[in-house]
Design a protein around this nucleic acid. Structure first.
Lengths: 216, 216, 216, 216
DNA sequence: GATGAATGAGATTTCATTCAT
DNA sequence: CATGAATGAAATCTCATTCAT
């Protein structure tokens, strides 16, 4: 199983044949089939273990977060999520490629994170988030998307504090904005953030999304 | 190629054998190898076409967005991104599974979107985003992550206006928050959103991770 | 061994792996190899036991038959043979599939039956059978063929009294006819049965293969 | 397929692996799977061909038999059946071992022969056979049993005219006896054959089936 | 150019048998 | 003796690719 992980990481899914796995594990192919019912089962077990590891890392961090104020908690939560995905990013990506799309164990982690996020949001009615489930899910998927793609394409960047800050801004910004949105009709009275955004240096039309032009 | 797409969508990557592709395309396997150098090339070409389609859909929408103020532009941009990913979500997902992780054509779309996002951000100095590239990339990956996972796991939800609103909140919230962050050190003078979130009325227990205890 | 029989009966030859046999027998695979030299030996022993059981059933019936006149004995002998094959028809058939064609223990039963039949025939010189060995063998194989195929294809039919009667007719008819044949040259003076069958009333068309046109 | 037959004949069922078949046929394993869906299909096709060959041989002989009187027809029919089974006795036996017991193509031949036999019997009402189907089936299975076992165990004996005569006696004897049986209650008035059998040289008790004693 | 039969390396899986404990 | 984990030869089948027609 660790053998499987190594092969998947180093050489990709195609290389993870039962023979290769057995060889790297240092056992005979026959032994492999005494412990696993087949290739799929091996990978499923590996995915399960991977998800459990990620969940463990996240859970450990959650314990420390409970006692923090939100502005301090979110940054550390983001750091925790980064750590989660650092458990084994390559494997994580390959598993996402390899697992059948339905009933994937990997989704468990996202579900877990989304559930926690929703619960946290719901426990703070002051945030005035109308649909905590949607908010939790959105934030989870958004952060997950950033982290997984970053790890796949620019692994070094994962340690960049600016990235972590961006994630914090993503989450806190969303919570602020989504909360406002519930309180006041955006169309009628633009909220704080909206107000901030509306006036650029260049007047009304300067506020438009001018693609391709440099800073006005 | 359309044949390949159909098979990938309907029956998954395993079913897309060269023979199956040739059969559905109504050509002989021999002819296939006159147009493509091999199986990988077929899929790569398909991915290329897929990315171009998505890019085309996005570009078309961008044209309409240029003249809009940002608060109006972002919602329509999000709608455009949703449309992009609706071009062929199943194929999109299967291609992400099938393509080798390095040098994937699929990344081109994300790069394209990130570049546009960065340009747009830079064109609004009023947003006061310190690192437009990072911001553009973050937003792109975040929105992409939400959309792709949603399409894979709960395809029907993609039409939910609440999801689109959540994406808008994600982007505008991030821009507001990230912009603030550049102007003032958050630790010293919490910005609007931070103020909203920061201090609960209850002192001690305000230190807890109770997101909702913010200012009513 | 009983375990082997059960598996062979229930699930066929393919299911009778050494591991399955050991499992059902409630012993370890290692122990199996202390009692038997290998898979073949297990099946051979099972076949041996099976043949002995059939032989025992037949022998028991033979004892009662000794004192009977032949016309009464043959029906009861046929009933006995039916009983023999009812010992375990499924196993019987599977063993015939599984055993190597050479040196099959299963042939012992047929040899046994043929020997007895030949002896019985020889002990009745009045039957006037020229070659008792051939006659015994022929009858044994004929009856065996009927019984085994019937059991394999239409197991329920084995209890049909009409089948038993047919077997009796087969044997007694053969004995009558084969006996006649030894006494008189059939071509010159047709025997009883021949007379019955020979000339139809109709001359010319009597030459056709119309079995029923015999003497009314 | 001829390759398969050769291997089955020479080396038995275990040797007929797909690789061995392909090798002997002089084609690659891949080609084998372009013509047959798998090992089972190859053997099934072989069995089909074998049955057709046997059926053809029998049919050819039947044409000549139609014009003969029954006493002449039966011997030639038996010769024809012998020829049938001489088509490829070893293969015939191996196929009977190898084919799955249900829905075996091999049964088609027996069904064919049994149907013909039943039809012939029914077309001769003078034979007074109460159940032509049973009689046809019984005779077919009986003769088949004799022939197949003889071919398997004592192949040379198949050319012995005495064996053929024994088969003729089996059939004609059965027909005579089964016909009588329908006309007169055997118990009340023993038929011709029975009468013949009853009196041995040694009086009443001499008629008993004295097993193991030599000829009185 | 088009065709598609042929190829064969290689993948997955089974199972009789062994042997250290 | 009993055990059962380990073994690995061998079987079936797939599929990307080639090449003679």
């Amino acid at each position: 199983m660790t053998a499987t992980a190594q092969i998947l990481e180093r050489d990709g899914p195609e290389a993870a044949t039962t023979n290769a796995i057995a060889a790297r594990a240092g056992v005979s192919i026959g032994s492999l089939y005494q412990y696993f019912s087949g290739r799929e089962a091996i990978i499923a077990a590996l995915a399960q273990r991977h998800v459990e590891q990620m969940r463990a890392v996240l859970s450990r961090s959650l314990a420390e977060l409970i006692a923090l104020p939100i502005e301090a908690a979110i940054p550390r939560l983001m750091a925790a999520l980064v750590d989660c995905h650092r458990v084994n990013p390559t494997l994580d990506h390959v598993l996402h490629q390899v697992m059948p799309e339905d009933a994937s164990v990997l989704d468990e982690f996202e579900d877990f994170a989304a559930t926690i996020a929703a619960a946290a949001i719901r426990s703070h009615p002051g945030l005035a988030i109308a649909d905590p489930e949607l908010a939790g899910s959105t934030l989870t998927l958004a952060v997950g998307g950033v982290l997984r793609t970053t790890l796949r394409r620019w692994p070094a960047r994962i340690s960049d504090p600016a990235l972590e800050q961006a994630l914090v801004d993503l989450v806190l910004g969303f919570l602020a904005r989504a909360g406002e949105g519930s309180k006041a009709a955006r169309a009628q009275a633009p909220g704080h953030a909206a107000a901030l955004l509306d006036e650029g240096p260049g007047g009304g039309q300067a506020a438009a999304l001018k693609l391709g032009e440099g800073a006005g």
